[in-house]
């Protein structure tokens, strides 16, 4: 049933470039990129119970690496994209070694501190990152000779990649490994007693989440054709975390809904109010106080109540 719904939703989305104007196509592309990023963070936050406040590190690093290898080293996308994703995954493996020495609030603080290091590096190491000016001059790739320059083509490309990402992450959490991951979230001591290596389960998840955030980073850099240190900042990580929590951590569709909500708010609200960061702060406080479980589980509960009321 839900599989049919997913296919229908996918088909409906694929028609967007045929019926909508360029502004809406770009909006949809941004939502998809934010959704891949939120989904990858959800693996840690929702399924692993590990709240990371530094996930933008992986998106930003991958985007910077891709931009650097293409513009400074003159590599084509067939080389720069795999290198960027591989480098990001290796960095996730290394960050995971450090951050997973702790769990809970300690984990959150270490991931935040690590991401701030990268952010500071992007700002200060002007020789490599071009500092506050950001890096530009990236051209979109042409896979199989198809130009991705138009908004519609890039949307389709993003849709294909994000569908694969969604499917792979869904398989990850519904596999036996995904079950043991949820076990380490709920009962780490019992899982350890049952012979599971709790640390290894968490670390592999951390690396896998870093990999998909790296993929989101590639989509991000080719969409914007520009990267600035703010992509690595705490507010960037916080936006991802807010998408996950607003949509519903530990659900498959929640982060997508949360990412859509955030991208739409950011685009429409910034037309009316100048203070996006303040608005972001208020949404954070409001969501945590009012619907801490997230929109998708909250709506589901509400619908369930209505259905029972009908009987």
């Amino acid at each position: 049933m839900s599989r049919i719904a997913a296919v229908l939703a996918l088909l409906a989305m694929a028609t967007i470039p045929l019926v909508a104007g360029e502004f809406y196509i770009n909006l949809a592309t941004q939502i998809l990129i934010a959704a891949v990023f939120a989904l990858s963070l959800n693996l840690l936050v929702g399924y692993g119970g590990l709240t990371s406040l530094g996930h933008a590190s992986f998106l930003g690093f991958s985007a910077y690496a891709c931009a650097w290898f293409s513009t400074r080293m003159g590599l084509g996308p067939t080389a720069s994209v795999p290198i960027a994703i591989l480098a990001t995954t290796l960095m996730a493996a290394f960050f995971g070694l450090i951050a997973l020495r702790a769990t809970g609030l300690g984990f959150l603080m270490i991931t935040l501190a690590l991401s701030q290091v990268l952010w500071g590096l992007a700002y200060r190491w002007v020789g490599v990152t071009n500092g506050d000016n950001g890096m530009s001059g990236i051209t979109r790739p042409e896979p199989f000779g198809i130009s991705l320059a138009s908004a519609g083509n890039y949307f389709w490309f993003t849709l294909v990649v994000s569908t694969i990402a969604f499917a792979m992450m869904t398989m990850f959490v519904s596999s036996a490994f995904g079950s043991s991951l949820q076990g380490t979230r709920d009962q780490p001591l019992r899982m350890a007693a049952l012979g599971h290596n709790v640390w290894l389960v968490r670390w592999l998840t951390f690396v896998y989440a870093g990999f998909w955030a790296g993929v989101a980073g590639i989509l991000y850099i080719y969409y914007h054709k520009y990267i600035h240190p703010t992509s690595l900042s705490i507010s960037s990580s916080a936006e991802g975390l807010l998408s996950v929590i607003a949509g519903g951590a530990g659900t498959l569709s929640g982060p997508i809904a949360g990412a859509a909500l955030l991208v739409l708010l950011k685009n429409y609200a910034s037309a009316y109010v100048e203070r996006w960061n303040m608005l972001l702060g208020f949404i954070f406080v409001l969501i945590v106080l009012v619907i801490p479980e997230g929109i998708v589980p909250g709506t589901r509960r509400l619908l369930g109540r209505l259905r029972r009321g009908d009987k």
Binding site: A238, N277, G281, F282, I283, V285, V288, L289
Partner: peptide, 8 residues
């Protein structure tokens, strides 16, 4: 998360 929101 609330303290993060408040900091923004």
């Amino acid at each position: 998360l609330v303290t993060l929101g408040v900091s923004f």
